[in-house]
Computed example of a mutant assay.
Amino acid sequence: MNSIIETLLDHRSVRQFEDKPLSKEQIEVIVQSAQAASTSSYIQAYSIIGVTDGEKKQKLAELAGNQGYVAKNGHFFVFCADLYRHELIGEMEQTDVDESLESTEKFMVMVIDAALAAQNAAVAAESLGLGICYIGGLRNNLPEVCKLLKTPKRVIPLFGLAVGYPEKVNDKKPRLPFSHIYHENEYEQDVSVIKGQLKEYNETISHYYNERTGGKRQETWTGQMANMLSQPRRMYMHEFIKQHGLNGK
């Protein structure tokens, strides 16, 4: 096993960071690593906003659900799906690109491109001995996030990435079993097999929470997911995206 795979397999989210900023060189390496990710048809449909202003970070922490590690970290990156530059390309080349930019396909491309870039950035950061935590809570209130970051039309902040020197490192959360995630040649159709795998995973997760909290938590994964999915969140998203000239067709 090589060091890259060891870094990948050793991942865990870090939510407590030292009050120590990343160096300019570290930031550049992380962003350059993000840019090295695969991109659909060379479209490079994303942008990264590094937030260093203390007041902005504090406001983002509040918008994300009062997550303190959004404000206290070594550096905070916001990954944005971005087709604004491609609108400008249409103007520069005197070509009508609106129908393409408003398509669901290009919306998927921009989101996938941003996610691939972010994961490259995360692995690069962890390979440098830093900790990371993805922050999806920015989508709690995208209108305010967009206003704060002054993002133009056709740019959607998708999530944040808090990076820094770990002050505390938690145990790794057990993932779904290999046999449940990986399907050979075709999707597993036997519901009893699928539910059986989930029940086994529930036992693993319940044991994990019990050990981590000294018996205070023993919930199962399916129970946790069912509770979360029974309470729809961020239901404004469809209209918000369409208002930004995206995913309309």
Rank of each mutant, 00 (worst) to 15 (best):
R12I: 01
H11Y: 14
H75T: 03
G74I: 07
K199Y: 08
A37D: 01
M1K: 04
H75P: 00
F17W: 02
L116T: 03
T95H: 12
C80A: 10
A115E: 04
G137S: 10
V109P: 03
Y165H: 13
I132M: 01
T95Y: 11
M92A: 13
E62L: 10
L138H: 00
I132P: 00
A81G: 15
S13A: 15
L142V: 05
F77P: 02
P232Y: 07
S33P: 00
A121E: 08
S47A: 03
Y165F: 13
K168P: 01
I112A: 09
K242Y: 01
E18K: 10
D98V: 09
W221K: 07
F79E: 02
Q94M: 09
D82N: 14
L130I: 00
E144Q: 15
G215C: 07
E126I: 04
A45T: 10
M228W: 02
I194L: 14
Q58G: 12
Q197N: 08
K242G: 02
N210H: 14
I135D: 00
M1Y: 03
G136N: 04
E28K: 15
I181K: 11
L83K: 10
I49M: 02
V155L: 05
E126D: 09
L229I: 03
I5W: 03
G90P: 06
A122G: 12
D96M: 06
N202D: 15
Q32E: 15
I48A: 00
K172L: 09
C133I: 03
Q94D: 14
G65F: 07
T7E: 06
R154T: 04
H183I: 02
L130F: 00
Q119C: 01
Q94A: 14
G223K: 06
D171G: 14
S192V: 05
D96W: 02
N210A: 09
K106Q: 13
Q224A: 12
K147C: 08
L88W: 05
F17N: 02
D113T: 01
V51I: 11
G164I: 11
H180V: 08
T104D: 11
K59Q: 14
A124I: 00
C133S: 14
K150P: 00
E126H: 05
P152T: 01
V78R: 00
P21W: 01
N247R: 13
H86P: 06
H75K: 05
Y165P: 01
E93T: 15
E62A: 12
L9I: 03
S103F: 09
I27Q: 03
G245Q: 02
K72R: 11
G223P: 04
V70M: 11
H75G: 07
K249F: 12
R154E: 06
E219N: 10
S127A: 14
N73P: 04
S41V: 03
K56F: 02
Y201A: 05
A36F: 00
P174A: 11
Q32V: 01
A64I: 10
A114C: 02
